[in-house]
Nucleic acid binder design. Structure first.
Length: 867
RNA sequence: GCGAAAGUGGCGGAAUUGGUAGACGCGCAGGUCUCAGAAGCCUGUGGUCAUUAGACCAUGGGGGUUCGAUUCCCCCCUUUCGCACCA
C-alpha cells in the first residue's frame, strides 16, 4: 500500500479537531506547561519560513503532551496594524474585512500543517472585546501616572500627512512615497517605561533560560550607566547648569562645557550675544536634521559667549553648543574633558579649545598633550588620576568613588544612575488600532473615558484615502462627544495605540479569553503564568519583549499578577532564506519564471541581462517565497515538518532547498513501508512457538540485549535529551539512524519479530512530534487504541543502552602513556590496532616489550610496557 | 568605533566531561530494475599517494598545554549579527 499523505493527514486533522485534543480546562489540576508562539500579524499567506516557527512549537507541544504535562498551546492574532490600512487604501477593502479573511486563511494553514492549538481560547486584538481591555489598561496606567501626554519630535511625512514609525523611515524617506521625512513637534502619549528601567535591567539576571544574546541586546538598549550629576555655576546668569558624567574623576580636565542645541537655557545664554541671529539659525538647522544627518555633518558647535565655573579647578570655562550633545540623554549638557573623551577631543581640536591630561597610565609616561592624536580613554586599574587634587595618584575606579564623595560633600551634585532607555511613544495617527480612551474638554482639559463607557469603539464606516491623515480625525460622529465631567461638548482623542501595546499582555488574556468582566482572571493567570516556553523570532528581541516585561511589571504592581517576568524560557528560531535573482545593474528583483540559465549563469529571459543570485529572507518582492500548499500537495505536511526541522539547528538561519526536501520524503516513505513489513512479520510469528519462546525468555533472562534493542534505547535517550535542548535536527538524524538499523535488521532476517516490533513502535512514538499524521496512522495500524499523541513518551533503560567498552590504559614504568577505548569483546588484533592507530601511543609501544596483555570484557585493561 | 557569536567535505551540518573527525541528509558516481526514463533499492563518496595492504595530510592561520585537541590557553585573519556621538 503506498503512503497516501493527503488522505492520512486529512483524516487525522479531522480526528484531532473532533476530539478537541488540544483544549485545556484551565481550572483542572495538572502539571501545567504554558507554551506560546508569538501571535502572528495576519498578513495573508504564510510561507514555509513562518511554518518553521509554528512547526517547531507544535513538535514541542506534542513532546510535552506525551511526557504527561498539562500543556496549553493557545493562538491568537496581532490583528491591528498598518498593512491592513494600506490594503484598504490600495484596494478599497475595509481593514477589518481584510484582516478577518487573512485570519481565516492562516487558520486553515495551521490546520494543514497539523498544528494543534487550543482554539477555544482564540483572540484577536482588533476585536472590541479584546481592545476594551487595552483601553482599560491604558486608563489604569494613566491613573498611576504611567501614561502622560507631552510634546515630542516625530517623523512626519508631508505628502501622506501622517506620522511614521521609525521603522517606516528608510534612509530618511517615507517608506511608501519616498518623500523626505521631516521632524515635527507634536503632542503625543507616552508610557513611562523609564520608571522601570532599573527593574527591567535587574530582572534580566533572573532570566536563566533566555538566550544570552537577547539579554545583552536588552541590557544595551536599557543602557544603564553609573556616574554623577554635577552643577556648574554660571556667574553671569546667576544659576547653575547640571551635567551628567560617568567619569567624574576627570573633572579637573573639564576645560569647557557643551550643551545640546535644544537645551532650555540656550536662549538665556545667547540673549546678549552679538552673533545671536547666526547662532539661532544654526540651531534651527541642526534641529531639522535627522540623527543620521547630524552625525554625518561631523562635530559642529557655537560659542555662547558665556562661561561656567569648574567647581574643582575654579577656572572659568567656556560654554559651547554642540550638535553631538543629545537633549534626550542625561541632562542635555556635558562637561567636556577633551583629554579623555574622544568626542570632546575632536571638538576641542576643531575649535582650538584647551586640552588637559588628568589621567595617566600607571606604568608609562604621561602622554604629551601636544602630540596627542586621540583621547586617552582608560578607566581600569592601569590608569590613575594626576594633577587632580585629593584624588591625585588614585587608580581610576577608586578615584571615581572618592570624587563622588567629594562632590556630595560640597553639595554640588550626587551619584547618579542614568539609562539610555526613552519613554515609549504610543500615539499613532492611524485608524486601524485601539482608540486611546481620552477626551479633550475646553473646560476640564484632558479627561479619561470612564471605565463603564469602554470600549471606545472604532467606527467602521470611514473613508480611506490615504492622503488626509488619520480618517478617524475626520469622523465627526466619533470625534464629537460630551465631557464625562461637565457634560459639555468635548472632543475625543483620535490617535490610536501602537500595536505593541496590544501584544504586551495578550499572553495573560488567553487564560480567560472570553471573560467579559475583567482583563483576565488573576487567580487563573497566577496558576498558568508565566509562560513556560515562548517561541518567536529574534526581531522581537528588544521592542516586544521589553514592552511585555514592562507591562507585566505594571500588572504586578496593580496586584493583578504575582509575577514580574512574563516568559520563563525564550527561544528564537532562525529565519528561512532562499535564493532570489536580481538585475545586476538595477538591483531589482526578478521573478523566477523570468530566469534562464546560460553557461550556468542566471540571465533575464526577455532582455538577456545578467542577473545576480542572492539569498535572502522570503518575501513576495524578492520572488523567493515557497508556499506550503504545493509542497503539502506533493509530499504531505509531515515531510515539510521533518524537512523544516532537519534543515539546520533551529536557532540558525537556514536556506531552503527544494532538492533536500526529497530526503525527508524518502525517510517517511521508508518508515511507512517498514511498518507494513513489521506488521506482516508480526502476523506470521505471533502465534507460533518462536513468539512464546521469546516471551518466556524475556521473563527468565530479562529483556533482550539485541543490538537493535540497544540502538533503540540509545535513540530514546538521545532524542529526549535533544528535545530538551532544542536540537531537533540531530534528534531527527538519530531517528533516521534508528530507522536504518531497523531496515538492516529486517533485511538480514536475523532479528525476532518481538524485538523488531518493539523498536519500530518506539520509533513511531519518538517520531510523532515531527511527523504526527503518519505516525498516528501507523500506530493505529498496529492495533493500538487511542491517539499516539496521548500515549506516553518512551523511557530509556540505561541497562539496555550501554555499549560494552573496554578502556585500555598503556603504562610505561607505571606512568600513564596512553589510553584508548575499544568495543567489547576486544580481539587481540583490535586492541593492538587501536593502540597503533591512536595518535602517538604507537611511539611508546614500538621497540618496547609488552609484558602483559589482559582482555576482560567490561573492565579496564592494563598493558604494562617495560621501559 | 563598541559589543556579541561563529569559521569542520561540493552543500546543510554531527562529534556528553579532551578520546577512532566528518554521524544524518542533500548532491555526485557506479550498479540493479526497465524497451527507455522516473521512482525505489544496493554500493561508493574529505584530500594526496598506492594495484592492494596501507601510508601521510586535514576542523580559518600560527603557537602552546597534553599520551591524545574540532574541543582548553595565547596571538592573528575572516564572516555574520546587534548598537551606534548615550557623555
Amino acid at each position: 500500500m503506498p503512503y497516501e499523505s493527503k488522505l492520512i493527514e486529512e483524516k487525522w486533522q479531522r480526528a484531532w479537531a473532533d476530539a478537541k485534543v488540544a483544549e485545556v480546562d484551565v481550572a483542572a489540576p495538572g502539571d501545567k506547561f504554558y507554551m506560546l508562539n508569538m501571535f502572528p500579524y495576519p498578513s495573508g499567506d504564510l510561507h514555509v519560513g513562518h511554518g518553521r516557527n509554528y512547526i517547531l512549537g507544535d513538535a514541542l507541544y506534542r513532546y510535552f503532551r506525551m511526557q504527561g504535562r498539562a500543556a496549553l498551546n493557545p493562538m491568537g492574532w496581532d490583528a491591528f496594524g498598518l498593512p491592513a490600512e494600506n490594503a484598504a487604501i490600495k484596494r478599497g477593502i475595509h481593514p477589518r474585512q481584510w484582516t478577518l479573511s487573512n485570519i481565516e486563511r492562516e487558520k486553515k494553514q495551521f490546520l494543514r500543517w497539523g498544528i494543534l492549538y487550543d482554539w477555544s481560547k482564540e483572540l484577536a486584538s482588533c476585536d472590541p472585546e479584546y481592545y476594551r481591555w487595552n483601553q482599560w489598561l491604558f486608563l489604569k496606567l494613566y491613573e498611576r501616572g504611567l501614561a502622560y501626554r507631552a510634546k515630542a519630535p516625530v517623523n512626519w511625512c508631508p505628502s501622506d500627512q501622517t506620522v511614521l514609525a521609525n521603522e517606516q523611515v528608510i534612509d530618511g524617506r517615507c517608506e511608501r512615497c519616498s518623500t523626505i521625512v521631516v521632524q515635527r513637534d507634536l503632542e503625543q502619549w507616552f508610557l513611562k517605561i523609564t520608571d522601570y528601567a532599573d527593574r527591567l535591567d535587574e530582572g534580566l539576571d533572573t532570566l536563566e533560560h533566555w538566550p544570552e544574546k537577547v539579554k545583552l541586546m536588552q541590557r544595551n538598549w536599557i543602557g544603564r550607566s553609573v556616574g554623577a550629576d554635577v552643577e556648574f555655576a554660571v556667574p553671569s546668569l546667576g544659576k547653575t547648569l547640571r551635567i551628567f558624567t560617568t567619569r567624574p574623576d576627570t573633572i579637573y580636565g573639564a576645560t569647557f562645557m557643551v550643551l545640546a542645541p535644544e537645551h532650555p537655557d540656550v536662549a538665556a545664554l545667547i540673549a546678549d550675544n552679538p552673533e545671536r541671529a547666526e547662532i539661532e539659525q544654526w540651531i534651527a538647522g541642526v534641529r531639522n536634521q535627522s540623527n543620521l544627518e547630524r552625525q554625518e555633518a561631523g562635530k559642529e558647535g557655537r560659542f555662547t559667549g558665556k562661561t561656567a565655573t569648574n567647581p574643582f579647578t575654579h577656572e572659568e570655562i567656556p560654554i559651547w553648543l554642540g550638535n553631538f550633545v543629545l537633549m534626550q540623554y542625561g541632562t542635555g549638557a556635558i562637561m567636556a574633558v577633551p583629554g579623555h573623551d574622544q568626542r570632546d577631543f575632536e571638538f576641542a581640536k576643531q575649535y582650538g579649545l584647551p586640552i588637559r591630561m588628568v589621567v595617566a597610565p600607571v606604568t608609562r609616561e604621561v602622554p604629551n598633550v601636544d602630540n596627542l592624536t586621540e583621547a586617552f580613554v582608560v578607566k581600569d586599574e592601569f590608569a590613575m588620576a594626576i594633577d587632580s587634587g585629593v584624588i591625585s595618584g588614585m587608580p581610576t575606579p577608586r578615584a571615581i568613588e572618592r570624587i563622588i564623595e567629594e562632590i556630595e560633600r560640597l553639595v554640588i551634585g550626587r551619584k547618579m544612575v542614568r539609562y539610555r532607555l526613552r519613554d515609549w511613544l504610543i500615539s499613532r495617527q492611524r485608524y486601524w488600532g485601539t482608540p486611546i480612551p481620552m477626551i479633550f474638554c475646553d473646560r476640564d482639559g484632558i479627561v479619561p473615558v470612564p471605565e463603564e463607557q469602554l470600549p471606545v469603539e472604532l467606527p467602521l464606516d470611514v473613508p480611506f484615502t490615504g492622503r488626509e491623515g488619520n480618517p478617524l480625525a475626520k469622523d465627526e460622529r466619533f470625534v464629537n462627544t460630551t465631557c464625562p465631567r461637565c457634560q459639555g461638548p468635548a472632543r475625543r482623542e483620535t490617535d490610536t495605540m501602537d500595536t505593541f501595546v496590544d501584544s504586551s499582555w495578550y499572553y495573560a488574556r488567553f487564560i480567560s479569553a472570553k471573560d467579559g468582566t475583567k482583563i483576565f482572571d488573576s487567580a487563573l493567570a497566577n496558576r498558568w503564568l508565566p509562560v513556560d516556553q515562548y517561541i518567536g523570532g529574534i526581531e522581537h528581541a528588544i521592542l516586544h519583549l521589553l514592552y511585555a516585561r514592562f507591562i507585566c511589571r505594571t500588572l504586578h504592581d496593580m496586584g493583578l499578577l504575582d509575577y514580574e517576568e512574563p516568559f520563563t524560557r525564550l527561544f528564537n528560531q532562525g529565519m528561512i532564506t532562499k535564493e532570489g535573482y536580481r538585475d545586476a545593474e538595477l538591483g531589482t528583483w526578478v521573478s523566477i519564471a523570468d530566469v534562464e540559465w546560460v553557461d550556468g549563469k542566471p540571465v533575464h529571459k526577455g532582455t538577456g541581462k545578467a542577473l545576480i543570485a542572492e539569498t535572502s529572507k522570503m518575501s513576495k518582492s524578492h520572488f523567493n517565497v515557497v508556499p506550503p500548499d504545493e509542497l503539502i500537495e506533493k509530499y504531505g505536511a509531515d515531510t515539510e515538518r521533518v524537512y523544516t526541522l532537519f534543515i539546520a539547528p533551529p536557532e540558525k538561519e537556514a536556506e531552503w532547498s527544494d532538492d533536500a526536501v526529497n530526503g525527508a520524503s524518502r525517510f517517511l516513505n521508508r518508515v511507512w513501508h517498514m511498518g507494513e513489513q513489521v506488521l506482516a512479520l508480526d502476523g506470521r510469528s505471533s502465534s507460533d512457538r518462536e513468539a512464546v519462546a521469546e516471551r518466556v525468555a524475556a521473563v527468565l533472562v530479562g529483556p533482550s540485549r539485541h543490538p537493535l534493542t540497544r540502538k533503540t534505547h540509545q535513540t530514546i535517550d538521545a532524542v529526549t535529551r535533544r528535545f530538551d535542548r532544542f536540537e531537533f535536527n540531530t534528534a531527527i538524524s538519530g531517528l533516521m539512524e534508528l530507522s536504518n538499523a531497523i531496515g538492516d535488521a529486517l533485511a538480514s532476517g536475523d532479528t525476532d519479530a518481538g524485538t523488531l516490533r518493539e523498536s519500530y513502535t518506539t520509533l513511531l512514538k519518538l517520531l510523532h512530534p515531527f511527523a504526527p499524521h503518519i505516525t498516528e496512522e501507523l500506530w493505529s495500524m498496529f492495533g493500538n487504541e487511542g491517539f499516539i499523541l496521548t500515549s506516553s513518551w518512551p523511557k530509556a533503560d540505561p541497562a539496555l543502552m550501554v555499549e560494552d567498552v573496554v578502556t585500555i590504559v598503556v603504562q610505561v614504568n607505571g606512568k600513564l602513556r596512553g589510553q584508548v577505548e575499544v568495543p567489547n569483546p576486544p580481539e587481540k588484533d583490535v586492541v593492538l590496532a587501536a593502540i597503533r592507530g591512536n595518535g602517538k601511543v604507537q611511539q611508546w609501544i614500538s621497540g618496547k616489550e609488552v609484558v602483559k596483555e589482559v582482555y576482560v570484557p567490561g573492565k579496564l585493561v592494563n598493558i604494562v610496557v617495560k621501559g
